[in-house]
Design a protein around this nucleic acid. Sequence first.
DNA 1: TTGTTTTTGCAAATCATTTGCATTTGGTAA
DNA 2: TTACCAAATGCAAATGATTTGCAAAAACAA
Lengths: 140, 140
Amino acid sequence: MGDLELWEQKLRDKGIRWTRQRRIIIEVLLASTRPLSAQDIFAKLEGDYPKLRLSTVYRNLNSFKDNKIVRALNLNGNEQKFELINGHHHHHLICIKCDDILPLDCPLKEFESKLKDDTGYTILDHRMKIYGLCPNCKNH
Amino acid sequence: MGDLELWEQKLRDKGIRWTRQRRIIIEVLLASTRPLSAQDIFAKLEGDYPKLRLSTVYRNLNSFKDNKIVRALNLNGNEQKFELINGHHHHHLICIKCDDILPLDCPLKEFESKLKDDTGYTILDHRMKIYGLCPNCKNH
DNA sequence: TTGTTTTTGCAAATCATTTGCATTTGGTAA
DNA sequence: TTACCAAATGCAAATGATTTGCAAAAACAA
Ligand SMILES: [Mn+2]
Ligand SMILES: [Mn+2]
Ligand SMILES: [Zn+2]
Ligand SMILES: [Zn+2]
């Protein structure tokens, strides 16, 4: 069973209907090594699917987000980017010049448990991102 | 010398003119214990200064950001929030129910230096935020 | 005080994202 | 297979945050 069928099953298990537009959105996300904005996804698809609307992409990404199929990230300031949730919890290191993105293992496990004890908060989620210059970009 | 005069000097040192609207924006930020959106700041001022425009608030916050007077944060999804940069580098713990905000010491020093060695990146900046339920909110 | 430069007020534009509604579609039960 | 109904989509228009163009006003150096 291929990756796509795995995601189809995951959606069906959550009672989410398997539509053409959901399939192609997931195909695009699967094919990408980096988080994508709704616009990014739409741009890759509008040629082959002229009837597809950006609002449909947004609606589905939001539904995926509610159902923990994708995760939304704010890597820059302006627009959300989305990536499939594949079980490997991670963060991102971003080159501010060429926009290269590296996944990072999460260093916050112990910090969160200490935090819980110190503050009395129930910790639910977190975001972390690191900005820098990749080896290529730092030498102009 | 009061806090305000300190910030005035900081702006003047960077060659930023000290205008009435810059003063009142900084006064609002100084008086707040939490990061504020442009709208938040505008709302607190429009009564006393009917001519003040939201675009002026935005223009100044952006100029402050470029000059490292304020820092922009994306605590939720939609709007930017701003806080004065006072030298104490920190992050935020946010209650997703009542919106309470606690400052957090940064736990990423060693992580960043390891990261630099592992990836060859020059690390320039980072963001971290933790979401949870405060002691009050977790008991409904 | 004057002159130059920057900032502001104001209105309109832009950009990401959402929403209303009529129509189409996916899934299911007959 | 067919018929049915809830849910999803196409489409257009709305929304909300943020930006921009331009003439008038204000800051500040000389
Ligand atoms: Mn990732
Ligand atoms: Mn803070
Ligand atoms: Zn780079
Ligand atoms: Zn709370």
